[in-house]
Design a protein around this nucleic acid. Structure first.
Lengths: 235, 235
DNA sequence: CCTACCGATCGGTAGG
DNA sequence: CCTACCGATCGGTAGG
């Protein structure tokens, strides 16, 4: 097999920066680039097939590498799976969480977080979501992969809870709102979207998730806005 | 291996009824009993490992049979998976749906269906649920197993929608209730229960699902009952 | 319902 | 990062 495609992939990941001084540094940089490219390919594969369907052989084929070449970067299949979980979490954080920090605390952030979350899950209707498929695959399988997955999900849900708490403190939500309860119901709307749209292929699911969120706000919110009017009918 | 355990399993499935007249009928009956026992074992295994993790070899070991002995009853792994889906649906129907037909139409059935559904999913927090794990495993894999799974789930959700529709007709729900929307939100509560209780092992999830249902009824219902009071705080 | 097998694929190792 | 291999397991088949 030609080695050219490999160099191209590695270069595409890190860009063509200034060359490192020593031979060792160059080799180490190339190793990191290759590893990043492997994780990227593995994440795409795991999104479609699930974390448990992720095999070193399939990743090697995509990368045009030997199985043991891929294996050498991780030392165990579990390490590859964990790297995939961390990468997915990192992207989720960048796309969903980070942008809302520019907004004022309270309801604006709660709404923007849901909007960004929805955007991601709506995108994942096509590709699959490893936070959802992984939860099912590893709910009964203790170990480091399950731990990495649960830690990522809990970190995200805790962040959402803090945003809801701030909104309550700001007086944007009723003072007696149960934070866990509200986030539970919102989480359910997201999970139903993934289930009904991706598995059942039922049309209108995205609108239903949004309507459900408006419904939640209409019960727990304090501002009688247009969005918070009881949304009995949709489309 | 002793053959005694096998006979005992087959007898336990169908009971010790009157013996059939002919030798062929006896053989056929025993075949059916064995097949039922295999499906039962496979359902238990698939609940824990998922439909896609169900292997003929593992079922054979549980049954103390050879792999090809199990295989002979189904002709293909897919047929075993489909049998498991049908058996799961049959039990779901018996436990969740059938009992409510004794109740009056309208809100009582809608509430009892949710209560029975909850009871089942709460039980499945320990064992796993193939309607949920199967949805994730087969959401991207066309074929007869996916079809059987989607058909079962759709049959159940349609039954729930009809119950909600009757409740609206009876005047137990607001006249402008969107049936699909209400069932979507209830479905989300169930999915969040499975996710948060089984995967995240978060305590209090069952109470949150019930509170969420009360919340849904408080918005869509017409009777201002105790259960339908806005449930902002739980436990 | 069995034994005995098939080709494919899995994660992982040896040795370079 | 490679070739060449290991033992285990997979679904499925042949032949009885």
């Amino acid at each position: 097999m030609s080695q050219l495609p490999r160099r191209r992939v590695a270069a595409a990941v890190a860009g063509e920066g200034a060359a490192p001084a020593t031979k060792e540094a160059r080799a180490s940089l190339k190793g990191q680039q290759t590893k990043a490219a492997i994780v990227d390919a593995a994440l795409r594969l795991a999104s479609r097939l699930g974390l448990e369907g992720l095999s070193i052989g399939a990743v090697a084929e995509i990368m045009q590498m030997s199985k043991s070449g891929v294996f050498a970067h991780f030392g165990a299949r579990e390490e590859l799976q964990i790297s995939v979980v961390r990468e997915h979490f990192h992207r989720f954080e960048q796309e969903v969480f980070m942008p809302v920090l520019a907004l004022p605390r309270g309801l604006p952030r709660v709404e923007a977080l849901f909007a960004n979350w929805m955007k991601r899950v709506a995108f994942e209707i096509e590709s699959g979501c490893i936070f959802i498929s992984g939860a099912v695959a590893f709910d009964d399988q203790p170990g480091p992969v399950r731990d990495a997955l649960a830690e990522s999900v809990n970190t995200w849900l805790d962040a959402y809870r803090r945003a809801v708490l701030l909104a309550r403190d700001e007086g944007h939500l009723r003072a007696d709102v149960d934070i866990d309860q509200m986030v539970y119901e919102i989480h359910g709307l997201i999970l139903a979207l993934h289930y009904e749209a991706r598995f059942l292929k039922k049309p209108g699911s995205i609108a239903r998730a949004h309507a459900g969120f408006a419904h939640v706000l209409s019960t727990y919110g304090t501002a009688p806005s247009a969005a918070a009017a009881a949304p009995a009918r949709v489309g």
